[in-house]
Nucleic acid binder design. Structure first.
Length: 738
DNA sequence: GCAAGGTC
């Protein structure tokens, strides 16, 4: 029997289907499925792994963080433990019955390594297989590619696998050594440890540097003049000079303006907005981030939709649909998707369907597209959002470009030049189905040169330049990709990791003081791990290993040498390093001033119970304390409650919407909040009961009830709502902005 | 209780 090992269950199934000369018999070893068939007269069994089946780790005797000197991890032996027990058992059992093995994992570095991992299990169970190994290299999971690959079997590339192993070892050696050193130097033990890694640390530095720039930013004042004009309809305009740097000049211009303006020029310009390109992973995750779903959650949701057969494989770099993809067949499926049926009919009625193409073309997987129909009722809210996003994007890529018309109007009032304008969509095209982030039309009244219009109101606005904006999670994902940090599959979890470690919070991403301190200390004392250059260098070395120009051992040993130097430098700067981080940690624990004595209230741990509470730095002179929520991350907001005057915090705990509260449980506002929660819960239960009783008419009733629920539970923090007055103008139907 | 990389 010939054993065929691929990277995932789905691939194993497809390979069997493509190669089978007879029917495919599905079987299972425990819970691991395999597929038996005949190829070239020989019995074959195709089985899928679950990605990596082995994980590098240190021997048992290194497991105690306190007793083991972190530097000993630099040269310690690295073992490989089985991380997927069930799969490993299945491989061993099937190997015993096999006469030969074909490795059919993904055609890339990690794929080669995964294949070699599987082989080590195979040989362990059946050493005779060692001389009967072949490799199938296909770059697309299509019948043509797979059969070709099996006709032209090659050898496993030990060099390519070794390159992957070098990455594994280096990541573990650096990550474990420095994580332990930093945690020990700052006395952060247990779940409070501070992590360091080749990808996460440069990412944290990126976020922190941006925050530093923001803090160092010197806002410069400038002045703007806006006016509300009317010619039958009202419309907005602003002074053509834009930003005035000199207040006096601006003031003079403002005073010059009279209550009438004359149109000096009307220009119209049409533009084409091309339809968006097909989704690859990064494109998909950033689009999801733009509708408020974090990359890690979007990746999870997409994975579920993929396993259920509703969308294609969600980890791909490709932005060009393969020729083999039958667009009409997919459209036929999508006809029944709620809300897009008519649009699909419109597309089907067109003669030829020409999809857009992105810049990146690979053949490993197609871009992400919907593979099946699913009804809204069958999915949870967030799943439906993601499914819709994929469906609408797919439809958009088959649609015509949109056309817009931009009207620019120049005017003059009291010798001062004004400008106004607006853009409207003249041909919807893809905008008719992919409405994410679409702007409302800005209609301009009909105006002609020389025409007088009334200046109803003029405004003199004092403003300030703004610091560079923080990274949104989507933006961060893009920047990481540009710098070569992480992979399409790991970036979401790396970002999530920074949240889980308490290095960052919120979206756009804000570093905590602890996060900023760790980033700065690493940059100052271990700069090698703090920039993306380490990854770039590693990539170069891995290429050399895979080309046979150097060996894995040489590369890893050289990396060890560098780490030893870094470690020495860290050791000699231990107190400085710890002081920087402690300052950050302390800053994060400050909640605000104590009502009793004015000193700082900080987050502390009770000696006996280990429970956290808010205590005054003036203790023992001041005995003011407050109890704090037992679970979740506490983020001091630096604001005081307007009802009781105690500091306000944000609490972020797993599986719950973050909430903002003051720390005084007896505050009248808190009582109110608790009552509101109780009421909302009661209403929800009542609603659920009503729904259960009703049980029909799911669509209308469902949507409506969700809306009301969102309204009752989501209370906007006052501080945040006030911070962003932008976009207020957009609410006025005819006002335009330029 | 370490990293990052696959896949569920």
């Amino acid at each position: 029997m010939r054993l065929i090992i691929s990277e995932k269950a789905n691939a194993a199934k497809k390979i069997a289907q493509f190669l089978a000369e007879d029917s495919v018999r599905d079987g299972k070893h425990r819970s691991v499925p395999h597929h038996t068939f005949t190829w070239k007269g020989e019995e074959c069994v195709s089985v899928g792994l679950k990605g990596h089946v082995l994980n590098p780790e240190y021997p048992e005797e290194y497991s105690n963080w306190q007793k083991v000197e972190p530097s000993s991890l630099i040269d310690a032996e690295i073992l490989k433990s089985v991380s997927e027990k069930g799969v490993a058992e299945a491989i061993r059992a099937l190997s015993k019955k096999a006469d030969s093995v074909v490795i059919a994992t993904d055609f890339d570095r990690e794929g080669e390594l995964i294949g070699v991992e599987a082989l080590s299990l195979s040989f362990e169970a059946n050493p005779a297989l060692m001389d009967h190994v072949e490799r199938a290299r296909f770059s697309a999971l299509t019948k043509g590619e797979v059969t070709r690959a099996f006709e032209e079997l090659v050898e496993v590339s030990r060099e390519l696998a070794a390159a992957g192993e070098a990455r594994q070892d280096i990541d573990l050696i650096w990550g474990a050594t420095l994580t332990r050193w930093v945690s020990r130097a700052t006395k952060r033990y247990g779940s409070a440890f501070l992590s360091v890694g080749r990808v996460q640390s440069p990412t944290l530095v990126l976020i922190s540097e941006r925050e530093r720039e923001r803090r160092a930013f010197n806002p410069e004042p400038y002045w703007e003049i806006e006016a509300n004009l009317r010619n039958g309809e009202a419309f907005g305009a602003r002074h053509a000079a834009g930003r005035f740097k000199d207040e006096a000049v601006a003031r003079t211009a403002y005073e010059n303006m009279t209550d009438v303006a004359t149109v000096t020029e009307v220009k119209e310009k049409s533009a084409t907005r091309p339809a968006p390109t097909p989704f690859n992973t990064t494109g998909f995750l950033t689009a999801a981030a733009n509708i408020g779903i974090s990359p890690s959650r979007a990746a999870r949701l997409a994975e579920d939709l993929y396993t259920d057969g509703y969308i294609s494989y969600p980890r791909t770099d490709n932005t060009v649909y393969p020729k083999s993809l039958d667009m009409r067949e997919v459209l036929g499926q999508l006809k029944r998707v709620e809300g897009v049926g008519e649009y699909v009919d419109g597309l089907l009625a067109k003669g030829e369907l020409t999809p857009t193409r992105g810049k990146k073309e690979t053949t490993d997987h197609p871009p992400i597209y919907p593979t099946g129909h699913v009804s809204k009722n069958a999915l949870r809210d967030d799943q439906w959002k993601i499914y819709q996003l994929v469906v609408r994007r797919f439809l958009a890529t088959l649609s015509e470009p949109a056309k817009t018309l931009r009207t620019t109007v120049r005017l003059e009032s009291g010798g001062e030049p004004l400008v106004s304008g607006g853009t409207v969509v003249t041909h919807e095209g893809w905008l008719g189905v992919y409405h994410y982030g679409r702007r409302a039309d800005e209609e301009m009244p009909k105006l002609e040169e020389g025409q007088p219009v009334r200046v109803e109101e003029k405004e003199f606005l004092a403003k300030e330049t703004q610091p560079p904006s923080r990274y949104g999670q989507g933006r961060l994902l893009r920047v990481m990709e540009d710098l070569g940090l992480g992979t399409k599959a790991t970036r979401p979890s790396i970002i999530q990791n920074l949240y889980d470690r308490g290095y960052v919070h919120d979206d756009p991403v804000v570093p905590t003081e602890t996060g900023m301190a760790v980033a700065r200390a690493l940059k100052d004392f271990a700069s090698e791990i703090a920039t993306h250059e380490m990854t770039a260098e590693l990539e170069r070395s891995m290429d050399e290993i895979s080309e046979g120009k150097t060996s894995k051992d040489a590369v890893v040993d050289e990396s060890r040498d560098v780490l030893r130097k870094v470690y020495e430098h860290l050791q000699s700067s231990e107190t400085e390093f710890a002081d920087i981080v402690w300052d950050g940690i302390r800053e994060d624990s400050i909640l605000g001033p104590c009502k009793k004595c004015g000193k700082n209230l900080t987050i502390r741990k009770a000696k006996k119970s280990g429970k956290r509470f808010a205590g005054c730095e003036g203790y023992p002179d001041c005995d003011q304390t407050y109890s704090l929520p037992p679970r979740g991350e506490i983020i001091p907001l630096g604001t005081l409650c307007d009802a009781c005057g105690s500091p306000e915090i944000k609490v972020v705990s797993f599986g719950r919407r973050p909430w903002i509260t003051c720390i005084d449980m007896s505050c009248p506002k808190q009582q109110e909040r608790r009552q509101a929660i109780a009421e909302a819960r009661a209403a929800k239960e009542k609603e659920a009961a009503a729904k259960a009783a009703e049980d029909g008419d799911a669509e209308g009733g469902d949507g409506a009830s969700k809306k009301t629920r969102a309204k009752t539970t989501r209370k906007k923090p006052a501080a945040k709502a006030a911070a962003k007055p932008k976009g207020a103008a957009a609410k006025e139907p005819v006002k335009s902005t330029t």
